[in-house]
Design a protein around this nucleic acid. Structure first.
Lengths: 212, 212
DNA sequence: CTTTTATGAATGAAGG
DNA sequence: CCTTCATTCATAAAAG
């Protein structure tokens, strides 16, 4: 591929001795332009991988029964110096302190998480750990919804002889043919839709298990 | 992504002036080890892309054979004897195929899905599953609104690769996903991605078309 | 390690 | 268009 050729070409360029900190180092050189090109090309690869993975997830939802799994996809990411795990957290988890504050605010009855409030709360909570406005927003949404649901569950106002509303979370839902339809396929064309909602986005390697 | 971080790390390293052929060049330096690491990591990307494409091809080859998911519109499967029909699943869920089409249309920029368009789109999509005009309308409304919100939420970082020292300590500011924002930079620069891309692997390129 | 639960996030739909 | 709600999906955390 072109990217590799580029790198190769550059690799063949002259070696230069640089006197860094009193010791001699043998290094390759690269201009800013070359560097920028490389960066962009890597980013392109990343984009492709990301989108293909998402497409795969979507398609495999349909093809799940077919059991088509191309194995041998393991790619050791070859961590450079000081490798550590790639696994990344994909989901925000409130710290105990944050949770406490959130619960307190929630109990204050202000069922109005206005935008202004959200910003405010986020600012406060960010002093106790990473958090975004979206996190706060979601938290209140979920908190309210689940609180409500619990109430419904406790109060059997239903006069019908049978209740099958399945509000009960006990519902066994997972079936072998559980279809997933999460197509994201956001694109990078017109612009910026591809941006992640917050600073978390599934990483390529975290999806590799789909391929094994 | 480790690769990106590597590149960044190296990018931060000192700039050196090299007297090449009588003229001064400002270049970045990289050790052989760093170079090798970069090369390997790029190769990993290439491998992933190739295999994902292969997988996609395999999967999509059978897509038409696979039954299209039914529209989750059960009335009441079990309630034969005096039953109820409180069934909850009443919500339309786009099939992957439908979603792909929708996304494609959305990305074509024609942001105003007029009534006329809606009808048209609905007609097309109905060939791939149950759907109504309202569904299409709602989908576009939601898609646009949420896309917009994402934009707002993105931290408007600077354009050039920033310093991400990647402190692995307890620092809350760790941005494992800085990768993504870089991605955005490249892809949203309008056509830049294609420039980098066009002369590369035509296979991938055609798939990008498909994705978009 | 596998299974279950709790909960953050995504999304179709409704109301204004 | 925007906000809000209800439901569903996916995963971190807990249980086995």
């Amino acid at each position: 591929m072109e990217l590799q050729k580029q790198l190769q070409r550059w690799q063949q360029s002259g070696t230069v001795n640089v006197d860094g900190n009193g010791e001699i180092m043998y290094v390759k050189v690269m201009t800013d332009e070359q560097l920028e090109t490389l960066r962009k090309q890597i980013a392109v690869y990343a984009t492709i991988c990301d989108q293909l993975i998402e497409m795969h997830r979507t398609l495999s939802a349909q093809q799940d029964l077919a059991g088509i799994r191309l194995g041998n996809m393991y790619c050791d990411p070859i961590m450079g110096t000081g490798g550590h795990k790639i696994t990344s957290r994909q989901r925000w988890t409130p710290t105990p302190v944050q949770l406490q504050i959130l619960e307190r605010i929630f109990d204050q009855g202000n069922g109005t998480p206005s935008k202004e409030k959200i910003k405010e709360i986020t600012a406060e909570l960010s002093q106790h750990g990473q958090i975004s406005e979206t996190n706060v927003y979601n938290w209140f949404q979920n908190r309210r919804a689940r609180s409500k649901r619990k109430l419904q569950n406790v109060v059997p106002t239903n006069t019908e002889s049978e209740v099958d509303t399945e509000v009960d979370s006990k519902d066994k839902k997972t079936k072998p043919e559980d279809f997933q339809s999460q197509l994201k396929l956001t694109t990078s064309s017109g612009g910026a839709e591809k941006l992640c909602f917050q600073n978390h986005n599934p990483q390529i390697y975290s999806h590799m298990h789909y391929l094994n």
